[in-house]
Structure formats: structure tokens, C-alpha cells
């Protein structure tokens, strides 16, 4: 067993963990922060994405012990102290960027990080920036719109529910 000390969503934690324990298991099983999901076993899906010292990482690619001393933000720590949704969460809501919601925590964290890193983002930039996060429900269309809305970019990617409806 190895001792790890981490700050998660603003609170400090110290635990003895098995050296082989993944960070995502530590978050989900030890801390009970089950908002972070697991979607694969090959670091391919991004469902487990969290912020580690401000940058997005797939928490299944790190051992818990590697996070020793780090500050982590998970989906549970994203909304404001008053419980208000973070602007990226709000944009996902407004643009219908989630369906089953399984990819959503990871997708939102990846988007938060992308928006923080890139000064300017166009559609291509968003699509490539989210390449590591898979979603089977949305076809990504509304996820891209939500992130672009946050970036302040109004690239024309179609209006939800309003595209040229023609009654017959």
C-alpha cells in the first residue's frame, strides 16, 4: 500500500492505496465520486476525463499514486458553490449535447480544458480537440455546437429543430 495525498474538488484527501489502483478507480471507489465514468480498457473513449492541475487527463491512464500531490477537478466539482451549472454544462443543456449522458462528464471536462487552452476555436478545432472522447448517441453535432457557443464562435452548423422545416 502506498500513501497518496490529493486535492479533489477543493477538498484534501489522504489514503493508503494499492500501487496498481487506477486514478479513476480511486475517484469512483475510494472517494465515491461516481460522476466520472469508465467506457473502455484501452484509454480510447475519454469517459473518464478529469482535470489534473488544470489540464484534462484520462483518469484511467494514470495510477492513483501518480496523482500524489495533484489538484483534481471532477464533474462533481465543476458547478459553482451555489450549485449553478458551469457555462459548459449550461451550453450542453441548451444545445441538447447529451442524450444518455454516459460520455457527458468526460466530454464536458475535455471541453472545459479545450476552451481554456485554445484562445480561438472554430468547428475544426473543436472537433479535433475532442477527438479523444467518444459518444455513441449524439453524432457529436450538438456537442460541437455547445462548445462553439462557449467559444463565442458562431460558425454556421445548423439550428436545433429549426432547419428548414417544411410541412407537406
Amino acid at each position: 500500500m502506498v500513501l497518496v495525498t490529493v486535492e479533489v474538488n477543493g477538498s484534501s484527501y489522504q489514503h493508503e492505496v494499492e500501487p496498481r489502483m487506477l486514478l479513476v478507480q480511486y475517484l469512483r471507489e475510494t472517494l465515491g465520486l461516481t460522476g466520472t465514468n469508465i467506457g473502455c480498457d484501452t484509454s480510447s473513449c475519454g469517459a473518464c476525463t478529469v482535470l489534473l492541475n488544470g489540464e484534462s487527463v484520462k483518469s484511467c491512464t494514470l495510477l492513483a499514486v501518480q496523482a500524489d500531490g495533484a489538484a483534481i477537478v471532477t464533474i462533481e466539482g465543476l458547478s459553482g458553490p451555489d450549485g449553478a451549472l458551469h457555462p459548459v454544462q449550461e451550453a450542453f443543456h441548451q444545445h441538447h449535447a447529451l442524450q444518455c449522458g454516459y460520455c457527458t462528464p468526460g466530454m464536458v471536462m475535455a471541453a472545459v480544458s479545450l476552451l481554456a487552452e485554445e484562445g480561438e476555436l472554430d468547428e475544426r478545432g473543436v472537433r479535433e480537440g475532442l477527438e479523444g472522447n467518444l459518444c455513441r448517441c449524439t453524432g457529436y453535432h450538438n456537442i460541437v455546437r455547445a462548445v462553439l457557443a462557449c467559444a463565442g464562435d458562431r460558425a454556421p452548423v445548423g439550428e436545433v429543430g429549426a432547419a428548414g422545416a417544411a410541412a407537406s
Partner: peptide, 21 residues
Amino acid sequence: TLAEYAMPSAAELPSFVTAHT
């Protein structure tokens, strides 16, 4: 595995134009 199975990410797909009769 998802490393081998070719499920697309946002980078591979275009935006869509949708409409309804």
C-alpha cells in the same frame, strides 16, 4: 478493443443539415 474497432470521433464526422416533412 476500442483501439482497434473503428468507431468515429467528432474529428471524422461533419456537421449535419436536418429537416423534416
